[in-house]
Simulated scan of single mutants.
Amino acid sequence: MRLATVRLDGTTAAARLDGEGNAYLIEGCRDLSELLGTRDWRSKVSGPAQRTVQAADLDYAPVVPCPSKIICVGLNYRHHIAEMGHQPPEYPTLFTKFSEALTGPCDDVIVPEYAANQMDWEGELAVVIGTRAYRVSEADAANYIAGYTVINDFTMRDYQNRTSQWDQGKNFEKTSGFGPYLSTDYVPGTRIETRLDGELVQSASTDDLVFGPARLIEYISHIVTLQPGDVISTGTPGGVGHAREPQRYIEHGQTVEVSVGGLGSVRNRTIVLG
């Protein structure tokens, strides 16, 4: 099953996608944040469509536009941990991203000139919660997942490294491409890849994760209640620009594309404005 938030007639709508990408609008839900917040959201998805939109006309918004929480995991791929000079962690490294940082999977990313010095890519698998989760066991965690999607944890490295707290480098307005759809079909061990203007810069298997989705849900839900529509961004593999020699960053006009096998791609061009 694939679900999306699509832009239409000056607003948005939650939609179910078919195998050709056509969207069947879900009655009474303006986006997936609203849909997942309803008690019977699975039955609403399978109900009759309000309207059908052809694939060629689809304009995707951030797949879950207004999560109450976006919890990101740092240093969670073994290769990335090694390239950044760290030891494997005993516990997940958590930080937060705000919903204002999200943008559509094909939108341009507009960056103010003062923040454009060290822009970096971080392709990631994202998990979306479908059922309220508090103190959930790893064995039961799959029952609380609505689906999986793709996110670029777009990072301003100079801002990130100003202090020991990373959030300020992770939250610039509308920089993180998110989508294009939510899928229940993710299979562990799939490929995650990032390309910069078509050049492959990240490529890994999600088997390289230190803490997989179920373990993260267990850990986080013992700290705070995860609500329907909340997002866990599971971390990035090796190959980020900041860890290269010489270091390499996104430049004005360049396009970053992140893909996860079976989940589609986000593809965002970066525009620097003075």
Rank of each mutant, 00 (worst) to 15 (best):
R2K: 13
L3Y: 02
D9L: 11
D9A: 14
G10V: 11
T11I: 08
A15M: 09
A23Y: 01
C29Q: 04
S33H: 06
L36S: 10
L36F: 15
G37T: 10
R39F: 10
S43E: 15
V45L: 06
V45C: 13
S46Q: 13
P48E: 13
T52K: 15
V53K: 04
A56E: 14
D57Y: 09
Y60E: 03
C66W: 12
P67D: 11
K69I: 06
K69M: 13
I70M: 01
N76W: 00
H80D: 11
A82V: 07
T93I: 13
F95N: 08
T103C: 14
T103V: 02
V111H: 11
N117A: 15
W121A: 12
W121M: 12
E122L: 06
G123F: 04
G123M: 07
L125N: 10
V127L: 09
R132I: 02
R135E: 13
V136P: 01
S137Y: 10
D140E: 15
T149H: 04
R157L: 10
Q165L: 10
D167M: 04
N171W: 00
F178N: 08
D185W: 03
Y186L: 06
P188K: 12
P188I: 10
T190F: 00
T194N: 12
V201W: 03
Q202M: 07
S203V: 07
S205D: 09
D208F: 01
L209H: 00
P213Q: 04
R215Y: 04
E218T: 13
T225E: 02
Q227K: 11
D230R: 11
S233L: 02
T236L: 09
G238D: 12
G239F: 08
V240D: 04
V240H: 05
V240L: 14
G241L: 02
Q247T: 10
Q247M: 09
Q247P: 13
Y249N: 01
S259Y: 02
S259D: 06
G261W: 03
G262D: 05
L263P: 01
S265Y: 00
I271P: 05
V272T: 14
G274Q: 14
